[in-house]
Write a protein that binds this DNA or RNA. Structure first.
Length: 356
DNA sequence: AACCCGGGGGA
DNA sequence: TCCCCAGGGTT
């Protein structure tokens, strides 16, 4: 077992200094860059978030640049990264700091926690990395490392588990270099103490890891509940104007998936439907008019199943060629300026009339 | 406490 | 297929 706090911390930090990746935000101490990277990496692998981080700091070198951008442009750059409320909250908070707080970034855990989109993890990360405040981070990596090294079987997503792991991490943190400690635990979890088949024999904690001693590495951390997948049926009306120079996009305003992103006019049904059902819907008839729809044809015969972590979207794209004047036409040449879900982006890139 | 929110990658 | 990812917000 680990004898004391400095024992765990020292072993860990030695490993970290020898094995850490050279990531761009590790060369920064400006809170804006650390904040940006932490928001982007929430529930997101470094490999996936990295190109977005580089794109953002290039487009928005300062927090004021971000604050002065339009939400639509921020969402466009965020497109494909998922969890779009992160982008909306990021933009909201950039404006809050720039315009209401005299461009002064909060510099304590407590104040950071008040920012929209900043929870316990992110506030701890920024406070420790930027301001040397000894506040321990607890993310998926920390849960895994601590549950194994200390043999803790309390479910990580129970209220008692959250407190137990936070308290333990707080006991273990190196008060002299909290930012290094926090990043070290996470890096160790991400690169060595991995979910599946970690190399326990050569681990720096091999002689004191409780899970290794009891052979329970593969069972830790314990996690309860599994969300069940919900199936939905989407029918998109891909409107094509007479000369095929314009289409129609609508913004998703209500709460739910893809809030604030754009999509084609949507008909959601309880089950898969055919052409006759679509033709009866008011949403379709709105593009019918006196001059008549010239064509209604199905782009994909079998539904495209777009899989989110908690929903499967069975999707049909219905191409509607109409002679009607479109209410708010979107020129095809501008379609790529709109932030859209990956499901829509994939269709756009495959649908020949939308290619230049 | 339970549920919602994306998309991608690894085994 | 299933799991998980440098989590946070809402109800």
């Amino acid at each position: 077992m680990i004898k004391n706090q400095s024992d765990f911390s020292n072993i860990l930090i030695v490993w970290y200094l020898q094995n850490k990746r050279d990531l761009p935000w590790r060369n920064e101490s400006q809170p804006y860059y650390i904040w940006l990277s932490e928001i982007m990496l929430q529930q997101t692998r470094v490999a996936q978030g990295l190109p977005y981080y580089l794109k953002f700091i290039k487009a928005f070198p300062t927090i004021a640049d971000l604050a002065n951008a339009s939400e639509e442009y921020v969402l466009k750059l965020w497109q494909g990264l998922g969890y779009y409320s992160r982008a909306r909250n990021l933009h909201y908070t950039a404006k809050e700091i720039t315009f209401n707080r005299n461009s002064e970034f909060p510099d304590t855990y407590k104040e950071l926690l008040e920012l929209k989109g900043v929870g316990d993890y992110t506030a701890s990360a920024i406070a420790s990395i930027c301001y040397n405040e000894p506040t321990a981070v607890v993310d998926g990596n920390v849960y895994r490392v601590l549950s194994r090294v200390f043999g803790i079987e309390t479910p990580i997503n129970s209220s008692s588990g959250v407190k137990i792991f936070k308290d333990l991490a707080q006991e273990l943190i190196d008060a002299e270099r909290p930012g290094t400690f926090n990043q070290a635990v996470m890096e160790f979890g991400a690169r060595y103490c991995i979910p599946q088949k970690p190399d326990c024999e050569n681990c720096v904690f091999s002689d004191r890891c409780e899970a290794k001693r009891t052979g329970s590495v593969s069972k830790l951390p314990v996690k309860i509940r599994k969300q069940k997948i919900k199936h939905r049926h989407f029918n998109y009306l891909v409107i094509l104007s007479d000369k095929q120079e314009a289409t129609v996009l609508q913004q998703r305003r209500h709460k739910g998936i893809w809030q604030s992103l754009y999509e084609f006019p949507l008909i959601e049904t309880d089950s898969e439907v055919g052409e006759s059902e679509i033709a009866e819907r008011a949403e379709f008839k709105a593009y019918w008019g006196k001059n008549g729809t010239k064509e209604l044809l199905l782009f994909n015969e079998s539904p495209i199943i777009h899989k989110l972590s908690h929903q499967h979207l069975h999707t049909k794209f219905w191409v509607v060629k109409t002679a009607e004047q479109l209410p708010e036409p979107v020129p095809i040449s501008e379609i790529n300026n709109y932030p859209v879900p990956v499901l829509i982006e994939n269709f756009i890139s495959e649908f020949s009339p939308f290619q230049n």
